[in-house]
Design a protein around this nucleic acid. Sequence first.
DNA 1: CTTAGCACTCTCTAGCCGAGACTGCTAAGA
DNA 2: TCTTAGCAGTCTCGGCTAGAGAGTGCTAAG
Lengths: 360, 360
Amino acid sequence: MKRAKLSDREERILRSVIECHIKTAKPVSSSAVVRNRSVPVSSATVRNVMRSLEEKGLILQPHTSAGRIPTDAGYRYYVDNVMEPRNLTEQERADLEGGFASLATGDLGAVVAGVSRMMSDFARQLAVTVAPSGEREVIEQVKLVSLETDRILAVATTRAGLTRSAVFELGREEVGGKLADAAALVTEWLSGTPVGDAERTVKSRLGAVPEPTRRVIAALLATSPRLFRLRGAERVHYEGARYILRHPEFSHNAAFIGEIFDDEEALADLVRGHAESGGVSVTIGGENPKKEMKHMSLVVGSYRIGGTFGQMGVIGPTRMRYGRLVGLVDYVSEILDELFSGRGRRTRRSPDKAADGDRG
Amino acid sequence: MKRAKLSDREERILRSVIECHIKTAKPVSSSAVVRNRSVPVSSATVRNVMRSLEEKGLILQPHTSAGRIPTDAGYRYYVDNVMEPRNLTEQERADLEGGFASLATGDLGAVVAGVSRMMSDFARQLAVTVAPSGEREVIEQVKLVSLETDRILAVATTRAGLTRSAVFELGREEVGGKLADAAALVTEWLSGTPVGDAERTVKSRLGAVPEPTRRVIAALLATSPRLFRLRGAERVHYEGARYILRHPEFSHNAAFIGEIFDDEEALADLVRGHAESGGVSVTIGGENPKKEMKHMSLVVGSYRIGGTFGQMGVIGPTRMRYGRLVGLVDYVSEILDELFSGRGRRTRRSPDKAADGDRG
DNA sequence: CTTAGCACTCTCTAGCCGAGACTGCTAAGA
DNA sequence: TCTTAGCAGTCTCGGCTAGAGAGTGCTAAG
């Protein structure tokens, strides 16, 4: 629902109220707005304008004869029409970029953890990163390596250059020297198949395979949850609990925050679904589907690995510095895209190398 | 500092005060103790005994004319002399054992996460699990597998049956067909060496190796942090934030709890150093080195993988159900030891298999 | 040594008051 | 018509008081 455009003066006053409230966490009085010099009029005039802003639902008084605080709609107007997404300074960009280069280890779990950590440190807010589901990542090949007596390492690589591995156990006599055959066969089946379909594909082809090889593939199949699926901790990572818990406004629903921390799925759901398109999405207070979140806002962006999107974002009180955070998320999403798609995405380089390249 | 043994009546009254306080979170009055039927005397007598318990420093009054609450020393006496570590029921044991069997995937990170989750669910408290450092795990072999054009997978296995892997990049022409040679050489160097010494050992031997092989080993060496060291999230895991945040007594130092959540090292430090000996260790309130923890207690136990110990424990308010938690931690430590040492630790089975075996 | 009884202390809640902070309104001025 | 000074009105907040309730310590009797 689009709101009518405000007059210039209304906009200035709305802005002043919001920015002052973000700083002080207190209701903003007409005289405070005048003191800010955001508008060259008297407090009585400001009061009149505030009244009209209140009628439009953009600000409200907690009680008669208090100052005004922004409503969700007020923040929404501010985010959409008033604020300037703050571009990061050269220094800040350099710091972030340096950090990302050093966390590039090729291991998705470490990347996800590192992104959260850096965003959280920068924003001084809770940050969450969700890895792409990987379901639509396309498999390149599967290898089987005999480790010792009876243990076998299965390694799957994807077109985007990620690697997953898992160990399983099978007696040497059961393998009957058919390890390489089994790997070649599975690679033939799966090459070009999305990870999400791997299990089904192998299952459907298994029947036609003669016995010693078949046993090997069956054992491989049993490990597929480990080989093809990401564990919770590898898929979702948050950082910055201290910031959100420090906010006095959250001490009352600390229990909800605790539940979020414990439930990776819930956490992922919060940021998933926003910003698949590549922009930065801001969700304010009551716009959130979860009612427990009605005093929190989300700033979420996305990045892309191979064919699928992951998300990263910042969660804080509605009273947050939107301009700064939008700038941050935007820049991080840019860096991550660079990191994973490399220069022209056919080069099929491992993420660490891409980063090393960027740096030196 | 050992305290004098209390009389039977004193002990009963101390116990009554503590157990009632644990239930209600409120100061316990003399009449409440009488109501509990823990002692067949009048409230006036109870008051006299309470006075002497107060002189001994085991309980105190928040203010004149309030009931008594236990001091840390009171809890300490209770834990050491009064409470019965509650053994788990058959049902509870079965539940836990079932859970552990299902989480056995051979991946240390998943085990650590799963142990925390189960303990937390059971105890309804924050639970923390620390993986053994692995520094003293002994390497068995190192393999190198060529993945595609220019990527190589390094796999290290240890005597205890854990596997770590990492990918690095090296052009085919640079390898010069010496991949197998390099792996054999490194295995020869490292077989029997503790993981913690691996990097140093390889570095010191590298000089004497002729060139094409040398390049390969040098590249391998560059990946060693990934290959031989555990990432934070794999090493420490907590679960049950919701429980600790739900406690009203913690809302005031929520900030500290947030910091704990954010800092895996701090979390690990809290439980490390307790209970290397195999027993269950209880740390109560002010006994804790960190002053922020002066209203929290820890119940910690240890388990063993290969040569080193990991810890797992429960963190909650001093007002916690010690008997139950000691029983839990004790049982979990027993299960984990079984899971990882298998039947006779020379069988060198991967953890998942050991668990599968236990189950059926 | 135990216990009934009682005076005493301290907390907790509700209610009240005055100070302070802002507002809305009104009426005068540009 | 818009702006502004001035003022009355409203609401919060902190401090204060009073009364009820809870629980103790003490005393003296059993």
